[in-house]
């Protein structure tokens, strides 16, 4: 409708004003403006930032050393000396949770980043090129789905030795499969859209089209799936560590702490509650931030 109602005009005037204020605006700048108005997302961001900073500073600010045992003390409930109590070896829980955060957060972010990069590129190329390339690429994904991932990781560990960085990569290399499928299905519907055809007829190279026109339009589902991947990766690490493939005590991670906490849940509930609360808080924060980012990166949602 070319004829615009007064309301609309008013809205437009406001938008123009804003546009002038934000000269040189980009998708990311707009996104930041919108994100800064979303309190839940800001809450999520602050929680994550807090946890990251604490993790980085842990060696200096932790109340005890992570190896410090006090077998005489045993498991005690929260007290003034040990705010979150101690485990059966008399180790301070707060310290262990702080050190555990270092491992869990790194695993969560690095492994997810690996999954994200491989998955998005793989899915985008398969979906965009289509035909035989797509068929071959997706059969590889199917084969990897069918491989029991434990065997895959054990194999990696045997060949390359146990190494925490390798663990990150191995988890990432398993988690990208679903991401690739999600991105592929998105791209397949996108590549039939007229704006992609228009880009073709402008003579843009395939890679430019994928980078500028395809991938940005898959951001919504990718972000949501990413926020779901991070926690599942953290729990996967716990599982691997439990089997003796990941990190080993006295080092800790949230997943491991929860695992041990479950075993002694009835006698020493705080050993489960505190790491559990920390992990849940992180997941909440991630979900809020993920939803906020998805909305903020979609130009169709309003800036107000």
């Amino acid at each position: 409708m070319e004829q615009i109602s007064p309301q609309h005009q008013e809205q437009q005037a406001q938008q123009e004003q804003r546009a002038q204020q934000e000269k040189g605006t980009s998708l990311w700048k707009d996104a930041w403006i919108k994100l800064s108005k979303n309190y839940l997302a800001l809450f999520g961001l602050s929680v994550l930032a807090f946890l990251c900073i604490v993790s980085i500073l842990t060696p200096w600010i932790a109340p005890y050393g992570y190896e410090e045992q006090n077998l005489m003390l045993g498991a005690t409930a929260p007290s003034l000396q040990h705010w979150l109590g101690t485990d059966i070896f008399g180790r301070d829980m707060l310290t262990r949770i702080m050190y555990g955060g270092r491992v869990s957060l790194t695993v969560g972010f690095i492994a997810t980043a690996v999954a994200l990069i491989i998955g998005v590129l793989w899915g985008a190329i398969a979906g965009f090129v289509g035909g035989r390339v797509d068929a071959v690429m997706m059969r590889i994904v199917d084969i990897m789905y069918a491989l029991p991932f434990m065997i895959f990781i054990v194999l990696l560990m045997v060949v390359f030795g146990r190494n925490i960085l390798l663990l990150f990569l191995a988890i990432g290399a398993v988690e990208w499969l679903t991401m690739a499928r999600i991105v592929r299905s998105q791209v397949m519907s996108l590549r039939k859209q007229e704006f992609v055809e228009a880009a073709h007829s402008l003579g843009l190279s395939q890679w430019t089209i994928i980078r500028r026109h395809i991938i940005p339009n898959t951001l919504g589902p990718v972000l949501v799936y990413t926020t779901l991947t991070i926690p599942s990766v953290m729990l996967l690490e716990a599982f691997l560590s439990f089997l003796g493939l990941g990190i080993q005590p006295p080092q800790s991670s949230w997943g491991l702490l929860i695992n041990y906490g479950v075993e002694t849940m009835e006698e020493y509930p705080w050993l489960l509650i505190f790491p559990g609360v920390t992990l849940s808080l992180t997941l909440f924060a991630l979900n809020f931030l993920g939803d906020g980012l998805r909305d903020a990166l979609d130009p169709r949602t309003s800036k107000d």
Binding site: L297, P299, R300
Partner: peptide
């Protein structure tokens, strides 16, 4: 080329 559907022919982002 000019396309039919102005809602689909522009990259929304």
């Amino acid at each position: 080329m000019i396309f039919q559907d102005p809602y689909a022919s522009l990259n929304p982002r």
